[in-house]
Design a protein around this nucleic acid. Structure first.
Length: 648
RNA sequence: GGGCGCGUAGCUCAGUUGGAUAGAGCAUCGGCCUUCUAAGCCGGUGGUCGCAGGUUCGAGUCCUGCCGCGCCUACCA
């Protein structure tokens, strides 16, 4: 409702200003600094002041006097050059009684690619930020009515998988059968085992640089896809993907489809993209200099300051394609521009509610939905890869796909690093240099980092203690389920509360916090709202039929209470907040709104004892507000991917 | 060297795209549990918005120049 009024007022002002002053300006609607100024503020008079050569206050007064009535608005007032708007509280309250209209779904499908973890080791907290950001943005888009397809790209033929294969085969001398046995051994955490093995293999390369030849050879075999080592690579990648899916499912993160690099290669996606790029002269065969023998994209294509020295190699001199090249082919497919499609089969997964599909070379299963062919594409990738995303976009542009290049959005975010204090707590020894830094970058190669599952386990353990201390009478099973929900709420909120552009210096203490600006704080508010309603039911009272019990007159009387009115306004801002957060691509805005909503409810909770209210009319309004708060809190949390526990 | 980002309270961070007296959380100090659960609420302390100019009715926000930090700038991804 708040949101509808906001846009309605904006339109009414825009139309009026165009008529009256022939002024085409985007009418801003602000929230006044102080509630005494009303519900909305329009600073349009400032913008007109120069053009009209009059003081803002005079213009504002003229506008306010001549403006035709706007539905739902009680009065326009002028103060300090602003036009302040006061709403009719009775009609506002009443309008919230009926469910909001469904948003009109925008045309086309949005594709969001996220997670995209190298399938060669356990997921760590950096991957968690990616997945939670991506998943939350997907939930925001869906809540806004968009059709969204979630892709998790699997780089199963890359260097990192090759490294683990080198580790198994060359360092440990394990056969394919032996590795398979490890994968199937329930007592072995295969992703943790590979975490260590990958670190050891990387160290081995450092100590024996000549062994890098092994990596090249294995990589080549994996790309070919026929040898036993290639099969080993597949076994490793599939097993690790399964581990990642399990980890992500714990957080409520799911996907629609897993496009894999092996199919990009074997279904000739790259070969097709290559022909297009070559024919359009987007890339050319370099004949001299350091890149001699490579197919390169000129630096000028993707960088304003790029010269020939900055050319990006797309095809190496040995004929193999770089990751970016494959990414261009993949991006073309995402927009339906490649003229090819994958085959698909279902990927086994224990916990998702909906089928999960994976690309395959062979003729796949029937009955899969249409994948790819999006009208806009969000790639959730950390900011270190912005250069590569520029190259991908330049590829589209060079092929003449200007719209799609514009629709290719690098949903970038800064990395998660470790605070020195947390490193110390985890027993990670740092160089003197690193100790002086405010944060230390995690490194999979060095095995330096916090594994996602370890962190989740730690959070659950701590939450369980808190739950048990408060609910000794509840069953272990119930406590465990609630602890789980609290842990995930804490983790998801922690990953979301920072804006995308700021580095998270991961601090264990902060991540484990359940008080203040945290997920559990918001969950607690939702639980308390529900408790009021539950308590009432326990007393044998049933909820009134609000639509018949309440009307504009009653709302008008009760909302004359300024505090109550402000609280109701807070609670009704969800759609407005969602719209702004989605438009600016900032899940953190959504998280912050949920926190502020919870703060608002906490105020309500303390100021208005609902069940003991003696005035009958007021009590009904308070009950309705309780239910309204509960619904808004639940919806906000659902958008953040956070569940509401039965008790806390 | 070039590109991107960051610099706001002791700490961690917001700041609605240029608007009214710069805000949260943590920490700290002081209050509030016989009440719908204190994972909560109320109050206090705490600011040269990195520095210097500029643009205008108005700048934490925009432009220029500095200073500091991070990331990228691979025939790795």
């Amino acid at each position: 409702m708040f949101h509808q009024l906001e846009t309605g007022i904006s339109r009414a002002f825009a139309a009026f200003l165009k008529n009256q002053y022939n002024a085409e300006l985007p009418v801003q609607i602000e929230q006044p600094k102080k509630p005494e100024f009303g519900e909305f503020a329009v600073p349009a008079a400032f913008q007109l002041a120069r053009q009209l050569r009059q003081p803002p206050n005079a213009i504002a007064a003229a506008i306010a006097a001549a403006m035709p009535a706007i539905s739902g608005v009680r009065a326009l007032e002028v103060a300090g050059g602003y036009i302040n708007i006061r709403l009719d509280r009775g009609t506002y309250g009443q309008s919230l009684l009926t469910p909001r209209p469904q948003p009109v779904p925008p045309e086309g499908k949005v594709i969001v690619e996220h997670t995209n973890i190298n399938p060669n080791k356990a997921a760590h907290i950096g991957h968690l930020r990616n997945a939670v950001l991506g998943d939350t943005f997907v939930r925001m888009l869906r809540a806004s009515g968009s059709a969204v397809e979630v892709q998790n790209y699997i780089d199963n033929t890359g260097v990192q998988v090759a490294d683990v294969v080198v580790g198994f085969h060359h360092l440990e001398g394990r056969s394919l059968a032996e590795v398979l046995a490890l994968v199937n051994d329930p007592s072995v955490r295969f992703d943790y085992l590979c975490w260590d093995l990958y670190a050891r293999t990387s160290a081995h390369y450092d100590e024996h640089p000549e062994s890098l030849a092994l990596r090249r050879a294995v990589l080549h075999e994996i790309e070919e896809g026929t040898s036993e080592l290639a099969a080993l690579g597949h076994v490793v990648a599939d097993a690790i993907v399964t581990c990642h899916l399990k980890t992500m499912a714990r957080l409520g993160v799911t996907y629609d489809v897993l496009p894999r690099e092996s199919e990009i290669l074997h279904l000739q996606f790259w070969a097709t993209a290559f022909e297009q790029l070559r024919d359009r002269h987007a890339i050319y065969l370099e004949s001299e200099g350091k890149n001699s023998g490579c197919w390169v994209m000129p630096g000028s294509a993707f960088s304003s300051s790029g010269g020939e020295d900055d050319s990006k190699v797309i095809v190496r001199s040995n004929g193999t394609v770089t990751y970016v090249g494959k990414d261009i082919a993949y991006q073309l497919w995402k927009f339906g521009l490649l003229g090819k499609d994958f085959h698909y089969r279902q990927f086994p997964h224990p916990t998702f509610g909906t089928p999960l599909w994976v690309s395959t070379v062979q003729r796949g299963s029937a009955g899969h939905p249409g994948f790819g062919g999006g009208s806009s594409v969000y790639n959730v990738i950390d900011s270190r890869q912005s250069y590569l995303q520029d190259v991908v976009r330049a590829g589209l542009r060079a092929l003449g796909y200007e719209d799609q290049a514009r629709g290719s959005i690098h949903f970038s975010y800064e990395m998660v690093a470790l605070s020195p204090r947390t490193c110390a707590e985890l027993g990670i020894t740092l160089s003197e240099e690193d100790q002086k830094r405010t944060y230390v970058e995690v490194s999979g190669r060095k095995g330096l980092g916090v594994k996602a599952d370890d962190l989740i386990d730690k959070l659950i353990e701590k939450a369980l203690e808190e739950v048990r201390s408060r609910h000794a009478a509840d069953s272990e099973e119930d406590c465990r389920r609630v602890a789980n929900q609290i842990a995930i709420g804490a983790l998801r909120y922690f990953m979301l509360k920072y804006t995308r552009g700021s580095v998270i210096a991961f601090d264990l203490g902060e991540a484990l916090a359940f008080e203040g600006e945290t997920g559990p704080y918001v969950q607690y508010a939702a639980v308390r709202a529900r408790n009021i309603l539950r308590k009432m039911a326990a007393r044998g009272e049933s909820l009134p039929d609000f639509e018949s019990a309440l009307n504009a007159d009653i709302f008008g009387r009760q909302l004359a209470d300024e505090t109550l009115w402000q609280l109701l306004l807070d609670a009704s801002r969800l759609d407005s907040a969602l719209d702004k957060a989605t438009a600016s691509g900032e899940p953190s805005h959504m998280a912050r709104f949920a926190f502020q909503l919870a703060q608002s409810f906490s105020n309500f909770y303390h100021l208005y004892p609902v069940l003991s209210e003696s005035d009958a009319e007021k009590r009904i309004v308070l009950l309705w507000m309780t239910r309204y708060y509960a619904a808004q809190l639940e919806r906000s949390l659902a958008i953040l991917g956070v569940e509401v526990p039965e008790f806390m």
